[in-house]
Amino acid sequence: MRTALVIGTGLMGTSAALALNGRGVDVYLQDHDETVARTAEALGAGTCAAPPEPVDLVVVAVPPAHVATTLAEAIGGGRGRGYLDVASVKGGPRRDLDALGCDLSGYIGTHPMAGRERSGPLAATADLFEGRPWVLTPTAATATDVLNLALELVALCRAVPVVMDADAHDRAVALVSHTPQLVSSMVAARLEHAEDSAVRLCGQGILDVTRVAGSDPGMWMDILAANPGPVADVLADLSSDLAETVTALRALQSADDDKRRGGAAGIEDILRRGNAGRAKVPGKHGAAPKPYEIVSVLIGDQPGELARLFADAGAAGVNIEDVRIEHSAGQQAGLVNLLVEPRSAPVLTAALRERGWALRQ
């Protein structure tokens, strides 16, 4: 790939353009908002000049509702050898293109499984896709050279290609992405009118559950409007679990011993099912999740403390597999949870204590 045209210079388009431009591809930028395109250009994503000839690959990074018309215009204008989109929904745009009479041999639907809570070109980074799955949804009509161009794009962005059927993809993202966004927003919505005394008790659990609730509502409206059926199906199943859980919790209030036992069994069942589902989520580097030990360290909220902690862990010869930080409410301190392999936990604990760190059991 020598040349590419990126249409849509928001977070995804600009991140792809930055990755391509940084690896020697001549990237041309286009957006319906010229100011946004100029911002991407200023960031080093490419040039807003028109391509002098058809490019090798046209990357369409616009909201799902506009994917088909944008692609149809690009294909009709002969703007590239190959065409792909990066929208989070795949079945609908492909059917829309087919209905518009487009030749689908030069097109492949794709979806990089990466993103941020922020949007726009200023949130873009060249490494946004590194190590992340990038779904490709070729059909029998997809030309081999177009599939190869898509694979080259994925490689240049240092992502991991995953081939799926378009509708299977839409059902999958409804489960692992779109429904969690809605559930996170629903939980966060309970906080809007909560008493300040309750909100002050927020800890790491509520922060984890509501993290994605800070995402742009306009962007998510576009996504959900393009995939309503599969999301509704998942929410319907979730609603059944929720109703059963409510019933079980009410039973725990009963004076009847049998009802209380039944309620406890119902709650335990959902918690155990949750354990089983969580265990299926891929761990580090996509491998099966490992059981890690947690070494909890109290640190001050001041420059250099984290760097010193990691340096001391490195000096002890211990690899930190993951890290989570909990901030103390109203205090200039925090709790850093270092996740390490079980055999490394005693070594790290002893080394950090020797270096004067305050550990929490």
Score class of each variant (00 low, 15 high):
H327I: 06
D26Q: 15
Q302Y: 06
D258N: 04
V86M: 14
P121F: 00
D258F: 00
E117C: 05
T245A: 07
I75D: 04
D103N: 15
A276K: 08
E321A: 13
V163Q: 10
F310K: 02
C202H: 00
Y292C: 04
L338K: 05
L84C: 15
L352P: 00
G277W: 11
G205I: 05
E34A: 14
G10F: 00
L242E: 03
A243F: 00
D96C: 03
V176T: 14
G286C: 06
E152K: 13
T142D: 03
A276V: 13
P64E: 09
T47Y: 06
D196E: 08
W357G: 01
T210N: 08
G10D: 06
I7D: 02
L306I: 11
A45S: 09
R360S: 11
G120M: 09
T139V: 12
R324S: 10
G317P: 07
V336D: 01
D312C: 04
R261P: 02
A16W: 00
D85M: 06
P52Q: 09
T139S: 15
I299R: 03
L242Q: 02
A37Q: 06
G203V: 07
E244G: 13
H111Q: 11
L128V: 06
G92V: 12
V135D: 09
E130T: 14
C102V: 13
E305S: 09
D216Q: 03
G229R: 13
E192M: 11
A333T: 10
V27G: 07
G91P: 00
A155C: 04
A279Q: 12
E244L: 05
A287S: 13
A255I: 01
L11S: 02
R211G: 08
G8W: 01
L339W: 13
M113C: 13
T142P: 01
T137I: 10
G266E: 03
L57M: 12
A141S: 13
N21F: 04
V62P: 02
G92W: 02
D269C: 06
H32I: 15
G24C: 07
V281Q: 07
S184Q: 06
L5R: 09
T69Y: 01
I267S: 03
A17G: 14
G334C: 10
P230Q: 01
V62W: 00
A45T: 08
L149M: 14
L11E: 01
K290P: 02
D241V: 10
T142N: 04
V297C: 08
H32Q: 12
